[in-house]
Amino acid sequence: MLSTMTNLLETTILYSTPLILAALGGLFSERSGVINIGLEGLMTIGAFTSAVVAINTGSPWIGLLAGIVAGILLALIHAVATVTFNADQTVSGVAINFLAAGLAVYLVKALYDGAGQTPVVESKFTDLAIPVLKDIPLIGDPLFNTSPITYIALILVFVSYFVLYRTPFGMRLRAVGEHPHATETAGVSVVKMRYVAVLISGALAAIGGATLSTSIGSEFSATTVAGQGFIAIAALIFGKWKPFGVLGAAAFFGFSVALSLTGQVWGLTEYVPSEILTMLPYVLTILALAGFVGRANAPAAIGKLYERGSR
């Protein structure tokens, strides 16, 4: 029983990590007023790039950096389309998803003689044990002897909170997402803030993607990301567009995945089919949006195109 509990916790943490990162990415973008349906695509490009670079350099860290660069570049397209050219943010996000899925699988086939997936990433992230803490019974091993990206993700939750709520930059970013015209009048460039926010979201989502291909899994294929970017959007909403809310929501969604996986061991799936458990995050998000599980209010200026001088 104790070992299954530990197992459950470990799996929860494993599956929460990419969600935390991608949802934090979405948080920056959406707080500045730019919807990011493209999280899925940004994760895909991050997962692909970091896997290929890790294979070729033998270092998952260099792979991660390359993945971040790729995520930023793809997010730049979203920023140019939505902020500079005033494209519909949802349409552009959908296109980003198409572009990433197409590009990544195309390049895998071009690089590896038409294969559907990359070779195995031999040099993936290995668990990093934190002395003393790892010896805490029950929670020590899953929490403090885990992938370095998990620590990064947790640290980034605090960093995001600090940046968004305790720095002038964060205050401006949030203001741009609520009242862009007033903020512009106060001397803040809406365009610049939104560019920066969207690029940050590309970087964070790409780290989330890298987790999938070089930490949890060890290859990249067309099904590596498989909807995680969309669950991240759900986590963002369920977490009410707040860093610690996102952490809680991602952990909860990770838990429901863990439950559907370890549930089979317990025989729980005899009573509740695993598909129903997998559905849970999505159903809860709808209920949250509908106001049945607390109210989820989006940033006021989200999705609205911004023109200087208009009201």
Partner: peptide, 26 residues
């Protein structure tokens, strides 16, 4: 031609982006 099919997906995405951003008119 042994070119991976996914290049069509890239073309597809690019067309959507160009149309959505009303790139030509702008």
């Amino acid at each position: 031609a042994e070119v991976p099919f996914e290049v069509i997906r890239i073309v597809f995405a690019a067309i959507i982006l160009f149309v959505a951003a009303n790139f030509v008119k702008q």
